[in-house]
Amino acid sequence: MAASGRPLEGKTIVIDPGHGGKDPGSIGQLGTIERDMTLQMSKEIEQELMERTGATVLLTREQDEAVDLQQRVDVATEAGADLFLSIHFDAFTTNDVEGMTTYHKNSKDQPIAQAVHDRLMEKDFDTRDRGVRVGDFYVLRENTVPALLLELGYISNEKDETRMRSLQFHKEASEAIVNGVIDYFHEH
C-alpha cells in the first residue's frame, strides 16, 4: 500500500486536453474557446495529481497545437498508462442545455467513470447532472487503456461558461477528478 501522501505511486495517467491549434472546439457566448479551456483545466489536473498522488502524468499537448486523435491514443499506449482522461466542454445548438457528463467506452470502465463523476457531482457546481454514459468517441474507442472523456459543462450555456472561466472552478473540478481517481484505484 502506498504511503498516504502518494496514493497513486507507480501509476501513469495521461490527460488529453481536447482540441487545439487549428481546431478550436466550441466557442461560447462570452468568447471562451474550448481548446484554451481544456488546456488550462488539464494543467490544473496535472498539478493536482502531481502534488497529491505521486502519479506520473503526461499531457497529449502542452500548448495550443493540433494533435490528431490517433497520436493522443498513442501517448497512452506507449506509456502503458493506467488511465486516459480526455477533457472537453460540450456545446449544443440551443443555449439552454447545461450540465456535466462523464463518458466511458465499455462496462469495465464504468466503475472509474462513476467514481470520478460522483466526486464532481458532490461539489455542487449548480449544474445539471447528465450522468455517466457510454460514448463512441475515437479516443475512447481506440484506446487500449481505461479511458474517460469528461464534458465539464456546456460552453454554449452562459451559466456553465461563466463557471468554467473561473479559476475556483478549475481548482475544485481538478480536486474532484483527482479524488475520484484515488477512490477508484484505492478500491481496485
Score class of each variant (00 low, 15 high):
residue 176 A to N: 11
residue 92 F to G: 10
residue 23 D to S: 09
residue 107 S to H: 08
residue 36 D to E: 15
residue 37 M to I: 02
residue 24 P to V: 11
residue 108 K to L: 07
residue 68 D to E: 14
residue 111 P to Y: 05
residue 97 V to M: 12
residue 163 R to M: 15
residue 8 L to D: 00
residue 22 K to N: 11
residue 14 V to I: 14
residue 38 T to C: 01
residue 66 A to M: 15
residue 12 T to H: 08
residue 50 M to Q: 15
residue 64 D to Q: 05
residue 84 F to H: 15
residue 1 M to E: 09
residue 4 S to K: 10
residue 4 S to I: 09
residue 133 R to L: 12
residue 180 G to D: 03
residue 68 D to I: 06
residue 112 I to E: 04
residue 70 Q to M: 14
residue 40 Q to M: 07
residue 54 G to E: 06
residue 168 Q to V: 05
residue 8 L to M: 11
residue 145 V to M: 11
residue 5 G to T: 09
residue 89 F to M: 15
residue 54 G to R: 03
residue 106 N to R: 14
residue 117 H to T: 01
residue 165 R to Y: 02
residue 126 D to C: 00
residue 105 K to N: 09
residue 131 G to R: 10
residue 133 R to H: 11
residue 96 D to G: 05
residue 33 I to L: 05
residue 167 L to H: 09
residue 119 R to L: 02
residue 78 E to M: 13
residue 127 T to V: 11
residue 48 E to A: 09
residue 115 A to V: 06
residue 162 T to L: 10
residue 39 L to C: 03
residue 116 V to P: 07
residue 41 M to K: 03
residue 54 G to W: 04
residue 17 P to K: 12
residue 57 V to D: 06
residue 67 V to S: 06
residue 167 L to G: 15
residue 109 D to T: 12
residue 65 E to I: 14
residue 188 H to T: 14
residue 114 Q to C: 02
residue 12 T to E: 01
residue 86 S to M: 10
residue 114 Q to T: 12
residue 167 L to M: 11
residue 112 I to D: 06
residue 148 L to F: 07
residue 33 I to E: 14
residue 92 F to C: 03
residue 142 E to V: 05
residue 135 G to M: 03
residue 120 L to P: 00
residue 15 I to T: 02
residue 172 E to C: 02
residue 75 V to E: 06
residue 98 E to W: 06
residue 84 F to T: 10
residue 107 S to P: 12
residue 19 H to G: 04
residue 3 A to Y: 05
residue 177 I to Y: 08
residue 180 G to W: 09
residue 6 R to F: 09
residue 14 V to H: 02
residue 186 H to A: 14
residue 4 S to G: 10
residue 2 A to E: 07
residue 6 R to D: 08
residue 73 V to R: 07
residue 57 V to H: 08
residue 21 G to W: 08
residue 79 A to Q: 12
residue 111 P to T: 03
residue 38 T to H: 05
residue 42 S to I: 03
residue 51 E to C: 02
residue 61 R to K: 14
residue 12 T to F: 08
residue 73 V to D: 03
residue 42 S to Y: 03
residue 24 P to Q: 09
residue 91 A to D: 05
residue 20 G to I: 03
residue 53 T to N: 05
residue 52 R to F: 00
